[in-house]
Design a binder for these strands. Structure first.
Lengths: 345, 345
DNA sequence: GGCCAGCCCGCAATCGTTTGTAGTATCGTT
DNA sequence: AACGATACTACAAACGATTGCGGGCTGGCC
């Protein structure tokens, strides 16, 4: 008796405890168990324990209209940048009983649209998007369907969707200040694509930081890479160095771009660090093992993922009105790729 | 008319098409639509199209007892090794209408157990586990609950669970053969932890490959690292080189261990490549940008994830009896960390 | 014209919960 | 002792789909 074939259901628990299924439900639900007699509550709880009862998430979800799952869309899962973000989000989500659906949108932005639609149709309770572009319509679509959304790592221009991103201005300023304090004055910038906020903001940050030092930061010392990869970075750096051979330092908008700079500098027969300094951005793993180890701005990605998940849950709970953009402050990790310029006065 | 408040339900479609809900269901289900009159079928399909009907996955899942989701448990999401595996699996899963639940088990094996239990309670239709240890009881638990499981990247000793892994013997043989052909004869091995199949198999592969060349491969030329990280790798390599200072090459069981070898070799004042050759394993990104660029065995991780997902789906469909272990053949990527020994005769 | 077969379609149960409502004790109060 | 309030608990209707089963209509055939 009490032993059933499949997974025990609420009905089994109710029968075992000698109560109606609705009473069993209330007894097992923390929110409603105050309305049930302490003694019968105990009976039900014990019965559930004895049978090893676990509520059926689909049945519950069908009734309560929530899946206890949230979706996360990543522009490129293979990029090591996103591992920590996912890990951070996952940790706070499981803590709250949610589970994480991962979507990979590595075939452009219409692909991202499709993935988002897919998740909405699966009735995720919320979305974390790492795929935002500066002009983004998909978000409007998502939010208009009533699904809470929070952006991570990147944001849109309109800024009408809550976002947890790094403080790109502050980060780039860290890099520029560091180089200036080393004595550099002719500094170039290998920028990221301007249609994502990171590329755009870091570029603006670069210009602002330079001008605050009274240094020149015209468009001719900035070269925009097609995409955050080593090759485009090398191409951009080459163009930059050809235009201004007297450049003594390059601030790259991304670690991979910085590695491209390494390559470009070497192909000119010069040495990274001693001849031309380079700074990266993000501080992905293994940068400390490069030759030379790369000085880079470190962004707290894990925390970023965690905070994104947390604010999303707050939105779902409806407690907070997190409508703004939260910028996490980066730090600078100084390594061997930056040094005083050869011609330091 | 036809416009309803929330998401259109099957009942709405039925009303719009002037049929009963069950007929609508059959019309929209590819498996049963042969039983419905072509004309009414057309009417229903058009109505569904017009209303933008999408079936409710929870309702459907509750009835059919499947969630159309599969769970994937990763020992450490932050490890760049798993990005491609996840991407490969995700791509084939979404293709078949499934979605991917990600679980991070970075707090040891009892954590993995818990994550797996969580997913089973969520009624995932199958599990892809990247967390296998050589003696693994959790799998028995999982499979005993009737959930199809396939292992990826690692497997158990018993081999009673389908697994998609790399051919570690072949991979290590590639590395050893390469070094031997360069003229090396005193080769050491920095092994991975022996309680995971990769560590164990690569060690065995090393011994076998060496002996086939008539070279010595006793336990004293093998040093096991505590874990697949740079520091343990450096420690192991140091111990190895202290015991056998005449070693001319090291085969590492993993890229990070190999980077540890780099460090150990340098701390002895020697040079990687020209003095002591080093091979890595997995070929994670950025290895080509190291100094020197690392020669490594490349494992087709993305394919690994894809095949794991595919065999899991086959098991779910019940069509195939994939009971064995599939080993994907690795390749060798030769770069600058391997060279003929200084004392080459 | 009647009968049977076959094709469609509708009816209703079901999956496992949650939750509004109604009903039955029990208790205290006068 | 009657009454109202209180405290639980049972009943049943959802949530949105799938599916076995029965029934109505049509058609063919004699």
């Amino acid at each position: 008796m009490g032993i059933v074939s499949g997974r025990p259901t609420l009905k089994d628990v109710a029968r075992e405890a000698g109560v109606h299924v609705s009473t069993a439900s209330r007894a097992l639900n923390p929110a409603t168990q105050s309305v049930v007699n302490p003694e019968t509550l105990k009976r039900v709880v014990e019965a559930a324990e004895r049978l090893g009862y676990r509520p059926h998430p689909l049945a519950r979800g069908l009734r309560t209209n929530q899946t206890m799952s949230i979706g996360m869309v990543i522009p490129d899962v293979e990029n090591p940048l996103f591992g920590p973000i996912v890990a951070g989000a996952e940790s706070v989500l499981v803590e709250e009983g949610y589970s994480l659906l991962i979507g990979n949108a590595d075939r452009g932005i219409e692909h991202a649209e499709a993935v988002i639609q897919d998740m909405i149709e699966r009735h995720v309770d919320g979305l974390v998007l790492a795929t935002a572009t500066r002009d983004d319509g998909q978000l409007a679509a998502a939010t208009s369907q009533g699904v809470p959304v929070v952006l991570v790592n990147r944001t849109t221009d309109r800024g009408d969707v809550p976002a947890i991103i790094g403080d790109d201005h502050a980060g780039i300023t860290l890099a520029v200040d560091h180089l200036v304090s080393l004595g550099h004055r002719r500094i170039g910038h290998v920028a990221g694509p301007s249609w994502v906020s990171t590329g755009h903001d870091r570029r603006q940050g670069f210009v602002a930081a330079m001008e605050r030092h009274g240094l020149y930061a015209g468009p001719d010392v900035i070269e925009e890479a097609e995409w955050y990869q080593v090759e485009p970075g090398a191409a951009a750096a080459s163009a930059l160095l050809e235009r201004h051979p007297d450049t003594t330092a390059i601030v790259a908008a991304n670690d991979l771009l910085a590695l491209g700079c390494y390559r470009a500098i070497r192909s000119l027969g010069k040495e990274v660090g001693s001849d031309i300094s380079v700074t990266g951005y993000n501080d992905i793993p293994l940068l400390d093992l490069m030759q030379p180890p790369m000085t880079a701005v470190r962004v707290p990605h894990r925390q970023m993922g965690a905070e994104a998940a947390a604010t999303l849950l707050a939105m779902i709970a409806g407690t907070e009105h997190t409508r703004g953009t939260k910028r996490l402050t980066p730090t600078l990790v100084v390594r061997g790729s930056t040094a005083p310029p050869r011609t330091a006065s």
